[in-house]
Structure formats: structure tokens, C-alpha cells
Amino acid sequence: MNSTAPAADWSAAVHEVLGTLGVAQVAYVPDAGHRRLIERCCDDTKMKALPLTTEEEGIAVLGGAWLGGEKGVLLMQSSGVGNCINMLSLTRACRFPLLMLVTMRGQWGEFNPWQVPMGQNCAAMLEMAGVLVHEVDKASDMAETVYAAGRIAFDGPAAAAVLISQRLIGIKTFGR
């Protein structure tokens, strides 16, 4: 078997929630688990989709967005969380709102052992950096969890992350 059952498509519901929250800037480092959501955001004329070279750029970009009166979201996979740690000092020192959606690797039946260190420690690292962690392992919970994390982020302001279980994304096996 090459993968688990096809992952349920939560991208439309989450994209709608981002619109409801008033998200205008969508910063991302591509990930297979975010592919459809990124496509929807790129197609949305009310959103500025911004690919990054590394995830910590997004922490700073979204701080600048908030200075300018716009809300944003940062999409990445769990390996990118490690790249963000020092830049999260900006979020914390200035109490910028931050909404991160993190697709998990290194977690559920991971094929690639190099993904495991960040996958297994992602939530703890985010919490140490002052980020409120919301974990999701059912597709049916995705939209309402993103909405809840968004409210706590933008109404706070606070930093909030939604960790999207690898069970929702499917196991990457490189065909083996």
C-alpha cells in the first residue's frame, strides 16, 4: 500500500474561515498538505499570497502586516517551525497576533526519519516560544479549530498555531 486512504479535503472550509477572519496576507512555504489551501488563497483576489524562502520571514512579514492594519496567516510544515524560533521573539515582545497552520510530518507512520525530530518536538517548541497550540486529528474539526485559533490570535492579540495531524494529510512513502 502506497498511502493511507485519500486525505479528506478541508481546504475549502479552511479558506472560507480565513476569509471570515479577514485574513489578507497568506505567507507560506509550500507543503503537500497545504497544497490545495495555497491554491485557493492564490486564486482569491482579496488575499495576497506570499511564498517565502524560509518560514521565519513569514513571522516578520505578518508583524509588518499588522503594523499596517492587515491580518495574515502563515502556512508551513512542522520542519519549518524550527526555523521560526528566534523570530517568534518579535511576536512575543511586541504582542503581535499570529496565526500559523502547520502540517505535521514525522509523526504518524513517517517514512523519512529526518522529519521525526521536528515532528515530535514541534508542539513543545512552539509552547516554549509562547505560542498557543491547537492540535487537530480529524478533518471535520479543521475549520472550527482554525476559526477558534484565529479568534484567540486576532482578538488577543496572541500567537496561535494549529497543528494538522499527519493522519489528515496521508503518509508520504516515496512510492515504496
Binding site: 513571522i59 516578520a60 505578518l62 509588518g64 502586516a65 503594523l67 492587515e70 518579535l90
Partner: peptide
Amino acid sequence: FPLWGAMGGAVAIGLGLALAQ
């Protein structure tokens, strides 16, 4: 907006701000 940290982030903050304004 003078920074006391976030080394490597000044241009990124400027980009998010420039897109918003």
C-alpha cells in the same frame, strides 16, 4: 519602528507593511 531583536527580519517587516499600506 526601531527593532531591538528579530535579526534578519527588518526587510520582511517592511514587506508586510508595504503590502498592507
